[in-house]
Amino acid sequence: MNLLPGPAAPATLPSHLNPAHIDAGNRTLAEMQELATSLTFAAMLTDDGFEIVHLNGATTDGGRFASMSSSVQALSDAVAHELKIGTNEYVIIASELGHVIQLRVQGHPIVLAALFDTHETLGKGLSIARIAARRMAQLMA
C-alpha cells in the first residue's frame, strides 16, 4: 500500500465536502479493490448518511446505499447499547448473492460499507474491510 499521506484536511469541512477526506477515501477504496476482486461496491460515508466516495458505482445508487448504511449502522449501535454488550464493532448482512460488511473508521464519524460477492468468505471480507478502515484513519491523521 502507498503510505504517502494525502493533502491536509481542513477540520471544519464536512467529510463529504472535504477534498482531503475525499482523496483519502478514493485511495483507500482503490487499494481495497486490489486486495479483493470480489468487492462489487464500496463506499465511505458520514455518520449522517452522506456519501464521501464510492467504488464501482455503475449498478448501485451510491447516495441511497450511503443513507441505508448510515441507518443500519445507527440501528446496530442502538441494539448494542440497549443490550449493554459494549461498542458495536462491525455489521454484517449475509445474503444469498453477496454480503455487506460495514464498520467505523476509528476516531472519525465515518463508516466504511463494502459489498462483496459470494466468492469472498465473510472472514476474508471482514479482514479486508478492517485493513481499509485502518488505512483510511491513517490517511486522515
Binding site: P14, S15, H16, T46, D47, G49, A74, A78, P109
Partner: peptide
Amino acid sequence: VVSTEAANTD
C-alpha cells in the same frame, strides 16, 4: 427513548 442520532454535517 431508543435513538439513532449521528453527528449532523448538514
